[in-house]
Write a protein that binds this DNA or RNA. Sequence first.
DNA 1: GCTTGTTAGTTACAAAAACAACCATTACCA
DNA 2: TGGTAATGGTTGTTTTTGTAACTAACAAGC
Lengths: 155, 155
Amino acid sequence: MTETAKIEGFDLLRFLPYLLNQAAEESSLTFQKIYKDRYGLLRTEWRVLFHLGMFGEMTATDIGTRGKIHKTKVSRAVYRLGQRRYLKRMPSETDRRVEWLVLTPAGEAVYRDLRDTAERYETALLEGFTADEVAQLKRVLRRLGGTPDSGNSPK
Amino acid sequence: MTETAKIEGFDLLRFLPYLLNQAAEESSLTFQKIYKDRYGLLRTEWRVLFHLGMFGEMTATDIGTRGKIHKTKVSRAVYRLGQRRYLKRMPSETDRRVEWLVLTPAGEAVYRDLRDTAERYETALLEGFTADEVAQLKRVLRRLGGTPDSGNSPK
DNA sequence: GCTTGTTAGTTACAAAAACAACCATTACCA
DNA sequence: TGGTAATGGTTGTTTTTGTAACTAACAAGC
């Protein structure tokens, strides 16, 4: 790597959004290979699947709100997951615009496999950091990302 | 938000790659509006510009390696930055495949403006965290993202 | 009931990214 | 040398995404 040093009082390598991107890129590229190679899933599809696996029945809008995923992305992911028979759609009895989404047994199996893999992957990723560092990192990231503190938040 | 609770021992909201993504997404979407509205830059273009502003002369490959940006993305970003006269290309004397890239005065001006904006943005983003938290966050992120410790690293 | 406004979700089209194939050069090495 | 591999960079094609506009259903006020 050839380059001329050119120091000014700003270092891209310490610029937070840059660091966040690099770290996010690195960690999701690695994990992406797994769900893509193993099940042919796209990033959004994986995210939708995980939401359903974790929370059970949800509507498309619920998923979008929770995961900050745009509704068109959710819509297309749901469509593809449906085609692969990883989820089924159940029309709501009370509102005909709404469909409840729920994983099929096949979808559940994929979810469990990926969830376990994710857990192992995270463990590997965090090897070498102390429990304190990890806890603090996650706390800070949650605040930065605007993630609700815990499982439930009202609309 | 309607949902059935379905607790199993894994929480997507605590899954590190997920948190990283949310935080990265949040922070770069906000900043994206600035460089897009103000200069019509694309994300990759902004990143390339910043690299050049920070390190001075570099080749396309250098930028790709440093920033983990695929070479086709770099190539197209360089092309567009060239069209806008934000950078100029200088053929290498020793290797006719290589071109050195360097910002024009116009490019420098854009860089300085965006850099300063970025600095203010980061300050706002990190308001409410202690200096210690920030330092530790960045240290951890650098390690996760495989970012070289400081400005210079040999090939 | 009927008009107006919202909400859930899909679809169409344009912009951007991923992927692969491709020159032109330079490096390696028998 | 000369032939093969590797490198720097660009271009073409296919996937994904982003943005807007749209349909269908519900809600609210009069």
